[in-house]
C-alpha cells in the first residue's frame, strides 16, 4: 500500500513537473492588481500589502503590483469586481473564512466555487484577552464568571456579530456548558481600534479578537491574553496557553488567502502556485508576518480548494451547533 502511494506521488510529481516545463507557460502581461475587499488598514489590506511588498522586494514577478481597495458588503464588493475579470490572471483578491461565513449565514451568494482559489497564505490565531488587572487568569476563570452571572461580564467583539471571533467565543461557551444566548456581546464596528480602548477603559470585561490586535498590549503588560485558538504554544508568545491546553478542544485558524478570477487556464494557476510557493519561503515574507502576529500557513491551489470543500462542511456544522444558523 505504502509503495503504491509513493508511486502515485512520484507519478503526480513527474506529471506536474512535466506540465510546468512542457507548456509554454503563462506570465502576467500587465499590472498585477491585488484586490483588498476592505478599507486600508484591515487584515485583508495588510495581507495584500505584505504580498505586494514581498513580490516586489524579492523580484518574484516582472510586472508592477498595485493594491486596490474595494470595501463593502463584508467583502462582496471586491469579490464581485474580481468575478467580472473572467480569465484574466493578473487579478487576485484577498479572501478568508468570511467568504464561507457570509454565504452560510445567507448574506452573500458568492462561494469559493465562483473563483479559482490560488493559495492560503497565513493564519492569525484568535485570542481571548482581558485588562491586565482583571481577576481572570485563564479562560476557565472567565467562563466560570460568565456562567455565574453573564450580565456582569460584557464581551467586546467586532466588527459584526457572526464573524470568526464571535463564533470562537460562542464555541468556547458552548463547550463550557454556557447557553450562548445569555452572553452579553458589545459590538464595535470599528473593531480593534475601538475594542482595545473599551477593554482598557473597563467598559467591557474581555474581548475575543485577532491576536495581532492585542499582541503589543499584552507585551506591554496592559492586557493579558487568556488563551489562543492555536494548536500549540506560539514561539513569539511564550507563556500564553492554547485553549486546548486549558481543556477546551478548540483549534481555529483565522486564515487568509488569495483567490483569482474565474475561468483561468491551468497554466495561469500553475504560474501563481510557483510564485507563491517561493514567496512563503522568503525572508521578507517571514519577517513581515511575524511582526503582525501571523503564522505561515501555505496551501497551494489544489490543496486549498480541497480544504475549502471540507471546511464549508465543518463551518456549517459549527454554525448550527452554536445557534447562528437554523
Amino acid at each position: 500500500m505504502k509503495k503504491l502511494c509513493s508511486l502515485f506521488v512520484l507519478v503526480a510529481l513527474v506529471i506536474s513537473v512535466g506540465t510546468l516545463s512542457a507548456t509554454p507557460g503563462w506570465k502576467p502581461t500587465k499590472t498585477i492588481e491585488l484586490v483588498a475587499p476592505a478599507n486600508p488598514g484591515g487584515g485583508w489590506d495588510m495581507l495584500c500589502r505584505v504580498v505586494q511588498k514581498t513580490l516586489v522586494d524579492e523580484k518574484l514577478v516582472e510586472k508592477n503590483v498595485i493594491v486596490v481597495n474595494k470595501p463593502g458588503g463584508g467583502g462582496a464588493v471586491g469579490w464581485k469586481y474580481l468575478e467580472g475579470k473572467k480569465g484574466q490572471g493578473e487579478f487576485l483578491a484577498a479572501t478568508s473564512t468570511l467568504l464561507m461565513l457570509n454565504n452560510l449565514l445567507g448574506s452573500s451568494d458568492l462561494t469559493y466555487k465562483n473563483f479559482n482559489p490560488i493559495a492560503m497564505l497565513q493564519a492569525e490565531w484568535i485570542a481571548v484577552a482581558v485588562k491586565a488587572d482583571s481577576p481572570h487568569k485563564g479562560i476557565n476563570d472567565l467562563l466560570t464568571a460568565i456562567k455565574a452571572n453573564p450580565s456582569a461580564v460584557p464581551i467586546g467583539v467586532g466588527p459584526t456579530l457572526g464573524n470568526n471571533d464571535h463564533l470562537v467565543f460562542l464555541s468556547l461557551a458552548k463547550n463550557f456548558g454556557i447557553d450562548p444566548k445569555t452572553i452579553k456581546f458589545i459590538v464595535y464596528p470599528g473593531a480593534g481600534g475601538e475594542i482595545v480602548p473599551a477593554v482598557l477603559g473597563d467598559h467591557v470585561k474581555a474581548t475575543v479578537i485577532g491576536l495581532g490586535e492585542v499582541l503589543e498590549q499584552h507585551r506591554a503588560g496592559k492586557m493579558r491574553v487568556l488563551g489562543i485558538t492555536a494548536d500549540k504554544e506560539l514561539e513569539f508568545l511564550p507563556g500564553v496557553k492554547t485553549f486546548k491546553n486549558q481543556g477546551i478542544d478548540l483549534i481555529f485558524p483565522h486564515w487568509r488567502g488569495l483567490i483569482a478570477a474565474p475561468g483561468l487556464k491551468p497554466e495561469q494557476i500553475a504560474y501563481w502556485d510557483d510564485v507563491f510557493s517561493k514567496m512563503v519561503e522568503t525572508k521578507t515574507w517571514k519577517d513581515q508576518i511575524s511582526k503582525l502576529g501571523w503564522t505561515n500557513f501555505y496551501q497551494s491551489s489544489s490543496v486549498h480548494t480541497k480544504y475549502l470543500t471540507e471546511q464549508t462542511e465543518v463551518f456549517n456544522d459549527l454554525l448550527t451547533t452554536v445557534g447562528l444558523k437554523k
Binding site: G74, L105, S107, P159, T160, L161, G162, P189
Partner: peptide, 8 residues
C-alpha cells in the same frame, strides 16, 4: 446591512 447583526 446592520453593522451589528448583518441583517439588511
Amino acid at each position: 446591512l446592520d453593522a451589528l447583526t448583518g441583517i439588511t
